[in-house]
Design a protein around this nucleic acid. Sequence first.
DNA 1: TTAAATAAATGAAATTATTCACAATTTACC
DNA 2: GGTAAATTGTGAATAATTTCATTTATTTAA
Lengths: 207, 207
Amino acid sequence: MSEISKATLKRYPVYLKALRKLSEDGVKRVMSSQLSEYVDIKSTTIRRDFSLIGQLGKQGYGYDVDELIEIFARELGEEYDEKMILIGVGRLGTAILNYNNWNHVAGEIVCAFDLYPEKRSREPKVNVPVYHISQLKEKLPEGCEIAILCIPSGAQEIVNELHDLGVKGIVNFTREHFVLPEGMIKRDVDVVSVIQELVFEVNSMNQ
Amino acid sequence: MSEISKATLKRYPVYLKALRKLSEDGVKRVMSSQLSEYVDIKSTTIRRDFSLIGQLGKQGYGYDVDELIEIFARELGEEYDEKMILIGVGRLGTAILNYNNWNHVAGEIVCAFDLYPEKRSREPKVNVPVYHISQLKEKLPEGCEIAILCIPSGAQEIVNELHDLGVKGIVNFTREHFVLPEGMIKRDVDVVSVIQELVFEVNSMNQ
DNA sequence: TTAAATAAATGAAATTATTCACAATTTACC
DNA sequence: GGTAAATTGTGAATAATTTCATTTATTTAA
């Protein structure tokens, strides 16, 4: 499993999601062609992607759904049950805390940080401890490598501090610009950009 | 501007965002190398991307920031001021309605639909009219082409109906699987997948 | 006014990603 | 147990994307 391309990496979570759904529906066995229709990715791409992890299927048969789930879950780090933190408990932050579709699927948000921890903690929907930003160092959970950023400003400073504290990955909901320190990774979740892309594409369809 | 690749298309909103920020900071002129550091995309890729729209820069000088903003804003359809609808006014839906960073940047959410419109409308934070899902046909704004999907289940049915009503693009926050009707486009915004990707990458860094 | 420096534009090369085409393997059925 | 049908796995071909290297236009400074 030495070198898996970026493009393939992006598809793994898609496969896992689809496989989970299939398993829920009682499907025990799946062929690349079926999965292809399901996720709208060419079957040959699927097989290629799978083959990078190992020989997961059987010729003339297909893939065992639960086996695949187990493998992908492991590869995608579900067993680690990542301890994550959330920074910025505003509206969006709260929505994310409550969006518990993911709990123990992609890790767990252990605690949060904000400029007004007392006020935030009083909100009934905030279900984790909230500390003041200045306590980042003391309160950062042991081994925490991923932070979810939902603050309106001041991202750079916080990112730098997180870096110093050993955090490696940022899920960035901020629209602010910041320079990513060496050795960190980030993923942007930017609804505005997504909509813009879509608008652009829809409008080119119309022409 | 006949054929712009998918990869390039995804970068345009990133450029626009960065350029807006630079303009706010009083920057009038930018070179591809500066922008490159800013957005973490190779300068040569930036120049290539820009050149697909036209000759936007001047040799030996760079690009005029405000001029670029105007061009990209137009290309990305900001002038259309898309009328959008939101379906599913739960926690996430409400957060999106309130996340007004984007208003009139990427269009405008005109109204929303839900199974319990009365209850949702009473929420103080819901700032658009909420109609019952069954009223989709009557209440869909004239010319609406984009819908934001935030429902926990029943996506397929709604997507089909949207298709029949002429909606072309879906911003999908749902984790449910649905088959996209011919001629529709969707973009998934899936926090769980994003986190999984990140966890996977962070953990491969560690090895 | 001219030369040197700068930086965009772009054809060509390199890299990355997808798809084809078929051999290899397994299942299912007789 | 053997054979036909099905489906994976993968080397090779193709396509898409990025990067290099050069050319061209513009600015700046003498």
